[in-house]
Structures are given as C-alpha cells and as structure tokens.
C-alpha cells in the first residue's frame, strides 16, 4: 500500500473498521444479541459499539464482553414490568396542584427508583474504561436540545440517561446536565459511528409500532414519542446514507407480531429474528470485508 501526504505506515488502514449501531426499540433491541451471535460465529470483529435508548443496554453488554447467555439473563432481569409499575406521585401532583407541590422543572409519570436500582444491579460501578471495544451512547440535553454522546463515566448512569423517555421517566443528572432519551435527537446514531471512523456500519434500527388503542396517560406519552421518533429516524437515516463514504448495512429484524415494551419473555424469539436478519446480509458483508479498502 502506498503512503501519501506524510501519513505514517502504521496509521494506514489495512481493513475496514466495523461499527455496530443499535437504535432505540426497547425489548426489540435484544435482536442485537442475535446479530452479535452471528458475527462471533463468523469471526467478524466489531471495532466499536454505539447505542441509543434500549439499544444502549445491548451495546453496553457486548462491549463489556459478557457472554450471550449472560447478556440475555441480565436484560431479562433489568427490563421488567416492575420497572414502570410505580407512579411518581410528586410529579403528578406538581402538574395538578403546582401551588401545593411546586413544579421541579421536569416530570415523569413513572418513579425512577426501580429503574435506577435495576441498572445498579446490572452494571454496578462498571465504567466505559472497562469495555473491550469503544462504546458510545446517545442522550439529549434537556436545556438546549443538543445530542450528547456519552463515552466515559459509569455505564449505569449513561444507560439511565439514554432511556429517559420524556414524560415517562424524569431526565437523568449526568455531570452538570439533565439528560433525556437519545431517541429525541438521534434514534439510530449512525452518525456517531461515522464520526468515530467506522467504514462499515451495521445499523440495527426499529420503528416503534403504533397501538390500536391508547388506554393510559403513559401509553399516550409513548405514542407521541413514537410519532416523532419514527419521523426523526427516517430523516436522520436518509442523511447518514448520503453522507457516509463507505457502507451502511441496515439490518431490520422481522417479527411475526408486534413486540410489546415489556415482552421480555419473547427475548429468545427476538434474538432469533436478529440472527435471521443478520444472516440474510452475511454474504454481502463478508464480500465487502474481503475487498481491499483501496479498491
């Protein structure tokens, strides 16, 4: 390989850098474990992981090098109905009687403590420094609307911020910022992978399903979030496709029926769907990885 413009030989790429990007999608994000299983079986190395919202959970367990079985068990324990079972009475009262219970500047219908406890039980004090491959998570700054990429500190804090769905959970305090769900700015953060130098981006994205009936305030909040997240996903993804210099492989798992927010009992089936979707792209992925980068 020729070297130009004074670039030292050891910095010249001899293979494509592969990124796995897992978008927002709650339990559906477990399909990323299926993708991971296929890549490991085929000996395809992932150089960096990027996640948004529910996708952060899986990006984190993969970059921390858990086994597939451990990852499945951890996420089953974390993502349960109990996590959303307790309502946040203070938040609710601050909306109804703000003179009696002053508004705090934000609110969430669901009490955050069960989620915080579940994240602590899953990730403990583990930090980004312990990851075997670089990990990036996307959240949204409540004050200025900026996308925030979290790449250091405690993993539990970063996941908490990235899953802080507006109206459902309160924002998370990380450093000097209040952070909300990454799906508000970048539901499938392919651009983070591009910025970090990825050539081949394996992007697993999910559009939120729209339920037929909306039976509660929290479901209404989910519905409103889904509408703008789905539209944002399309707008961002179109731009990322045009902006990227190499390949983005969109991996879309197909589910027989809609996967609910807390259908953790369907995780094995979701993982299988991720495997199938990845296997369908495997011949092409192997061809592009085998092609010299200069061609």
């Amino acid at each position: 390989m020729s070297v130009q413009n004074g670039v030292p030989p050891d910095s010249v790429k001899d293979r494509r850098k592969v990124a796995m990007v897992i978008g927002a999608g709650s339990v559906k994000c477990a399909a990323a474990l299926g993708m991971w299983r296929v890549l490991r079986r085929e000996g395809i190395e992932v150089d960096l992981y990027v996640g948004c919202s529910g996708g952060c959970l899986y990006a984190a367990v993969m970059s921390l090098d858990y086994t597939l079985e451990e990852a499945e068990q951890l996420t089953k324990r974390l993502w349960t109905r109990e996590v959303t079972a307790r309502k946040d009475l203070r938040s609710l009262l601050s909306m109804i009687v703000p003179r009696l219970v002053p508004f705090a500047g934000y609110f969430g219908l669901v009490n955050e403590e069960p989620l915080n406890a579940a994240l602590r039980a899953t990730f403990g004090e583990r930090t980004f420094d312990e990851c075997v491959a670089p990990l990036h998570m996307v959240a949204t700054d409540l004050q200025n609307g900026e996308r925030v990429v979290l790449s250091s500190g405690r993993i539990a804090d970063a996941v908490r911020a990235s899953v802080a769905m507006p109206y459902v959970w309160p924002p998370a305090r990380v450093g000097d910022r209040w952070l909300l769900d990454g799906c508000m700015t970048d539901p499938l953060p392919v651009d983070v992978a591009i910025r970090e130098g990825a050539d081949v981006v394996l992007a697993m994205g999910f559009e939120a399903a729209y339920p037929r009936r909306i039976r509660s305030a929290s479901r209404y909040a989910f519905q409103v979030n889904s509408i703008y997240t789905n539209n944002l996903l399309r707008a961002n993804y179109g731009f990322h496709n045009l902006a990227h210099h190499d390949e983005i492989l969109l991996i879309l798992p197909d589910f027989d029926r809609p996967v609910g927010l807390f259908d953790t009992d369907r995780i094995p089936e979701v993982i299988k769907a991720g495997e199938r979707a990845t296997e369908a792209q495997l011949p092409y992925l192997e061809r592009i990885l085998a092609t010299p980068i200069t061609s």
């Binding site: 994205g205 559009e207 996903l233 399309r234 707008a235 993804y237 179109g238 496709n241 969109l250 879309l252």
Partner: peptide
C-alpha cells in the same frame, strides 16, 4: 421498499 421508506427516500 422498507429500506427506501426508512431512509426517507419514498418521500
């Protein structure tokens, strides 16, 4: 078509 839709191209 799914890819075209998700990338906003159908618009």
């Amino acid at each position: 078509l799914k890819v075209l839709e998700l990338s906003g191209f159908t618009s």
